[in-house]
Design a protein around this nucleic acid. Structure first.
Lengths: 155, 155
DNA sequence: TTGCATTACATGACACATCAACTTTCGGCG
DNA sequence: CGCCGAAAGTTGATGTGTCATGTAATGCAA
């Protein structure tokens, strides 16, 4: 199964990584939806809002932070607004801008979902690994992320 | 930033992992599309077909292997068939079944795409990591995947 | 202070994913 | 045989992501 582009170790790492992500994402998504009615995308938005002062974020700032396109976030916010999880507010001093604000309903939703979700993260990943493996995973992520961020800034 | 559910090392690993995946997927997807006109989904299908005898797969078997739903695969095959990348064939001996078969056009497409794609995997991930990190990443994936596969078989 | 590029966000069209039916065929058991 | 549940795929409705574009406000330079 070794290709001529990646050696055995490399290919094993790459395949394992991809398969892990696929399965993990599916499992966590299903559990979250079943237990709380939120999608992982909802969770991403809400969990970032709840961590920040005033429970509000500028749309573009949030999009940057979670690495979504503005468009994707805008569409998703519209749907979440329809469900009462967030609301948009005007920015005083910049009439173009908008805040995304966590509603009471959104706050309840994320408060209820967080323990369940993170316990899933534990059960399906964190608790399966040694300290050393976790450290290394953190290192790997950091290296790759730094590289990719750098790429974005020039062309 | 440490929550009460994950300690610092755990949270760092989890966040880094997620962020890495998001960025990496976006980058590889964009490059693949720009260079070859294929999506990552197309690539997944084609690269699995090309590796197998007769360049054909039973639909359900392929769906299982790549961890897609039958429905998702069926829809995607329809679109790929429209573009001439694959074709469906009857199974002799089981009139319900269908093979997905790689067409000449599909073979050309995957042959042209593979080096570019895997060189992207190299540049944006594999070559950034040490041997040890790659080994560990392989281990991590293996552990998590094994756990998740096991879960699927029972509840 | 006007002119114009830039910023902030929304939108519409289209590609893709998911879910729940639905069709056809199989295989087994009475 | 004849029935019936399960298996293999497809399909259609609907939810979600992407791309290109639109609209309005901003700020800066001439």
């Amino acid at each position: 199964m070794t290709s001529k582009w990646l050696d055995e170790t490399e290919e094993r790492a790459w395949r394992a990584y991809r398969r892990m992500f696929t399965l993990l994402e599916a499992r966590l998504g299903r559990e979250l939806a079943a237990e709380t009615g939120l999608s992982l995308a909802d969770y991403t938005v809400l969990s970032n809002l709840v961590e920040v002062d005033d429970r509000r974020y500028r749309v573009t700032a949030l999009a940057d932070y979670v690495q979504w396109s503005q468009s994707r976030l805008s569409h998703h916010l519209t749907r979440m607004e329809d469900r009462g999880l967030v609301r948009r507010e005007q920015v005083s001093g910049d009439a173009r801008g908008a805040y995304v604000v966590l509603t009471k309903r959104g706050l309840q939703a994320i408060a209820a979902a967080t323990p369940a979700h993170l316990s899933g993260v534990r059960r399906h990943m964190v608790d399966l690994l040694t300290r050393e493996q976790l450290e290394t995973l953190g290192d790997i992520g950091q290296i790759v992320v730094r590289h990719l961020i750098e790429l974005e800034s020039e062309p």
